[in-house]
Amino acid sequence: MAGELYNKPILFAVVATVVILIGTLVTMFYPMMRQEMHPKLDNLKPYTALQLAGKDIYQREGCNNCHTQTVRPLKTEVIRYGDYSKAGEFAYDRPFLWGSKRTGPDLARIGGKYPDAWHYAHHENPQSMFPKSNMPKYAFLKKAMVDPPAIEAHMKANDFPYTAADISALAGKTEMDALVAYLQSVGTAVKKKASRVVAEAGARQHEKNPLAGDAKAIALGKTLFAENCEACHGANGQGGIGPSLADDVFFGVKGDVADDDYFEVINNGIEPGMVEEGRVAKDTMPEFKALGKDKIWSLVAYIRSVQGK
């Protein structure tokens, strides 16, 4: 009987199809019927028209060929990128954009990490911020315009809510505007958590910089500054995308603050609305807690030396 299978092609094709469908049903079709495959975080919002236009550009340019969008639940990954990805974050992604290769860093927590100006400058010319970066220049996005009727069709296909005003507001927006709007939305449905790992190593209130004035620390701080801070704060801390660090203005208010405030800002980054010494932040800055305590204090020592203190 079994031998007949090998001289009956139609029967053979049917049996082969059944055999390949078993694994398909169990690992692909059955999960699809389960709620665990369709989770949605409560505060996850559908993309706005401009964000969707940006996501379309992200897909068109194949950003997912070099950037992943999923933080794995692994210790060093959580330190580097932020909280690990939750299943409920991706309900509006058709399809998911997790990627499979990190030639560039993961972007699952890129939203709100940098100010918009950083993204504009970086996409226009990545090498201006990271001289040896292999990322292509996307300056042409600044000249290409978003097409409102097309985006309206895309909003409809996704069944995302929008108003006529949302669509007309797209007129005059560049593709760069859209891409930055999208990136700033990525991963923001999960609230930023104070890091559970390195924060303990952070400064205690009113702690003095143990490395203040230390020549070696200042030299190290200078190197670290060039690698991590210069792109936004200028070669000598004179300012650029970010504010000047050479003056005694902090969070837009004149008057110096203590070393541990600097430490905290470098360690935790800045989110708009954050309060430090009674001053309210308006800007965004990424956290650098992955550098660790010694390097952050070295940076503070260097910044102080630039300020002449």
């Binding site: 690992t27 999960p31 495959m37 992604d93 399809p95």
Partner: peptide, 23 residues
């Protein structure tokens, strides 16, 4: 789901689309 001649969105979303894609 087509959204014009040169653009479409997968009928599968999020985690589920990941599972279908790698299947």
């Amino acid at each position: 789901i087509p959204a014009g001649l040169t653009k479409s969105y997968s009928v599968f979303a999020g985690v589920n689309s990941a599972n279908v894609e790698w299947w």
